[in-house]
Design a binder for these strands. Structure first.
Length: 152
DNA sequence: GCCAACGTTGGC
DNA sequence: GCCAACGTTGGC
């Protein structure tokens, strides 16, 4: 079982939306590094921190579980979708998604606090200018962030 | 809204 | 395969 962090803009899709839906696909990842992790490494049962970006309270806000491994993201074929990719062919889909299930909210762990924690210096999120939308989290980092919520 | 940092594209 | 130009991301 591995740990991950998924970024989302809460104006588009928030932890509250996920809680309401209970289960959701994670569509719209259009970055090769992030795609490769979904395609090759993310497994059913993996644990995911949900992170809110581009908003007032930037940081980790909750936990979800992976319930379905990579399969084609159909939005890439939908011309009406903002995630449409005209260069992707249905017989050879370029982009994939996974499904996750809501687990619980966490008390916000802000980016500011994560940046200030030396134990998280290697987290891609904290390293200068990283814009990865999906990134691996080590066991140590996972538990450190959980500790920072003060809730365990 | 600004802007730094990073990814992608395309000409050569 | 290099690299300059361009587009996007995301914190502030």
């Amino acid at each position: 079982m591995a740990y991950w962090l998924f970024k989302t803009e809460p104006d588009t899709f928030s932890i509250d939306t996920l809680k309401q839906q209970k289960v959701s696909c994670w569509e719209g990842v259009r970055n090769y590094q992030a795609r490769n992790m979904m395609r090759d490494e993310i497994k059913v049962g993996d644990q995911v921190f949900i992170y809110h970006s581009s908003c007032k309270d930037v940081g980790v806000v909750g936990i979800a579980t992976v319930i379905r491994e990579a399969y084609p993201d159909h939005f890439q074929f939908d011309p009406e979708s903002p995630y449409f990719d005209p260069k992707s062919a249905p017989e050879n889909p370029r982009w994939v998604m996974v499904d996750i299930e809501y687990q619980r909210h966490l008390r916000l762990v802000s980016l500011k606090r994560m940046k200030a924690n030396p134990a998280l210096a290697e987290l891609p999120l904290v390293q200068r200018g990283s814009r990865l939308s999906i990134m691996p989290v080590t066991d140590v980092q996972w538990h450190e962030i959980l500790q920072m919520t003060g809730q365990f």
